[in-house]
């Protein structure tokens, strides 16, 4: 009960203090706001690249064309081999007749040409489409399939896929690095801003010590204050991101430049981003206050 009362008072005092030291609070809040805005942009970029990468990765398929006159038992053997390969996510066998049907359905020109082909005359190949779990393994798996007896040609968009993988990887690393660096910089920036706030309140801390407040008693209101500053600082970035991203999303109809690059739908993505921003703001505010007040508790 006593602990609850003290805790409640700490929250009340922290809240009061934010408004009583308004100009300094405003400095801390704007500092948090500005950095969180940049963090928000990085997070949005990061998740969209992530999403785009995984979409592309899902689309990349290895197509293995089988030998012309392959026997059914040989096909079964290849299928079993592919099934047991570790990096394979799924595979799909298409007989040359199936492929013929599909092509005929897709266009009337094909239909005119192909309708008279008997099963023996069909020049198409039986094929197996393979999707891989990890796009970085695609090269190795393609090679393994190609080496199998009964497989004549393997295609997976060589060259282009490798380049894409490299580009995604770079963007990925850069955005992660950017977000981490920004969070660290924000934490120290806020810590220093709050240090100025606390410096002007050294007297308050001195009096608290004098009347018998324990170090924890002194720290908690300041840390709570950091929490409030962080939360207030996150308000504008959250509103700006939700509004801004939703507008951009609708303006571009959910895709950037081409249907190939799809943006993440604002819901629930924006809720996550808001929560992340609020969380970063609060943690960074609390850390900053804690780091700043620590200095004044030594005698």
């Amino acid at each position: 009960m006593k602990a609850f009362r003290i805790f409640g008072r700490n929250i009340r005092d922290a809240f009061k203090s934010v408004f009583r030291n308004f100009s300094l609070s405003l400095a801390s809040i704007s500092c948090i706001t500005i950095t969180l805005l940049v963090v928000a942009v990085s997070i949005i970029l990061f998740y969209n690249v992530n999403n785009f990468t995984s979409l592309v990765e899902k689309d990349v398929t290895i197509v293995a064309f089988l030998d012309k006159n392959i026997k059914q038992d040989k096909i079964d053997e290849i299928e079993t081999k592919i099934k047991t390969m570790s990096g394979v996510a799924s595979y799909d066998f298409r007989s040359k007749d199936q492929i013929k049907e599909e092509m005929m359905e897709s266009s009337s020109d094909f239909e005119n040409i192909m309708k008279d082909w008997s099963s023996e005359e069909n020049p198409l190949y039986n094929a197996i489409q393979v999707k891989v779990k990890d796009i970085e393994q695609i090269n190795k798996i393609a090679k393994e399939i190609e080496d199998m007896e009964g497989v004549s040609i393997v295609k997976y968009g060589e060259g282009m896929v490798e380049q894409l993988i490299g580009a995604f990887d770079a963007v990925h690393k850069i955005t992660i690095g950017l977000v981490i660096a920004l969070i660290i910089v924000t934490a120290f920036l806020i810590s220093n801003t709050i240090k100025i706030t606390i410096f002007s309140r050294q007297r308050e801390i001195e009096i608290m010590r004098l009347v018998g407040a324990s170090n924890l008693n002194i720290k908690i209101p300041f840390i709570m204050e950091g929490l409030f500053l962080g939360a207030f600082g996150a308000i504008i970035p959250i509103i700006a991101t939700i509004y801004g991203y939703t507008t951009i999303y609708h303006h571009f109809n959910g895709q950037l430049f081409s249907p190939f690059i799809k943006l993440l739908a604002p819901s629930p993505f924006m809720y996550y981003v808001s929560l992340i921003l609020l969380g970063i703001g609060i943690l960074v505010g609390m850390f900053g206050s804690w780091r700043a007040v620590r200095k004044y508790l030594k005698i």
Partner: peptide, 20 residues
């Protein structure tokens, strides 16, 4: 050594509040 931004009551109550 009073808290300038706290009232007389708050200044005095302050030392009791830390006891809970």
């Amino acid at each position: 050594k009073l808290l300038p931004k706290a009232t007389v009551y708050e200044n005095v109550a302050f030392s009791l509040e830390v006891f809970g």
